[in-house]
């Protein structure tokens, strides 16, 4: 069965690239949205297998979106991977403390993105 991933990023370019990489290279079924608010609605109506969530977004940012997801029984269990433009490990540690399954760094290698997501989730490549 095709794994379904919800991609959340406010940048059109990043969304297109990540979506293409995950679909074409990794074979994921990707739904892409551009804000935390949209992500909450989408995840509740059609819960995905995992969420790839940008950290810095206008409005509801990544950590706030994660916190909201955790309060809704429909979305509380969905593994979330942060996608961050900050490279520091201290920053990553803080994100993991919020309850994320993993942290991936921008810019990513598009040919490896799907493998990295799978590795974080404990899926085979």
């Amino acid at each position: 069965m095709t794994r379904r991933l919800l991609l959340v990023d406010d940048d059109d370019g990043v969304r297109l690239v990540a979506r293409t990489a995950l679909e074409r290279v990794g074979g994921w079924a990707v739904t892409a949205v551009s804000s935390g608010e949209e992500a909450l609605g989408q995840a509740a109506t059609d819960p995905p297998d995992a969420i790839l969530l940008d950290v810095m977004m206008p409005g509801l940012d990544g950590p706030a979106t994660l916190a909201e997801l955790r309060t809704n029984p429909l979305t509380a269990h969905i593994p979330v991977i942060f996608l961050t433009a900050k490279a520091r490990t201290t920053h990553h540690a803080r994100l993991l403390e919020l309850g994320a399954s993993g942290v991936l760094v921008k810019p990513f290698d598009p040919m490896q993105l799907s493998n990295e997501v799978a590795a974080v989730l404990g899926f085979g490549p």
């Binding site: 940048d11 370019g13 990043v14 297109l16 990540a18 990489a21 433009a85 810019p107 990513f108």
Partner: peptide
């Protein structure tokens, strides 16, 4: 710098990587 430079670089690197990767 961290955010605003990396975001376009992500699109650049990603699209170029997909092209050279033969996708």
């Amino acid at each position: 710098v961290s955010h605003e430079l990396r975001t376009p670089l992500t699109s650049l690197k990603g699209s170029l990587g997909l092209l050279t990767g033969g996708v």
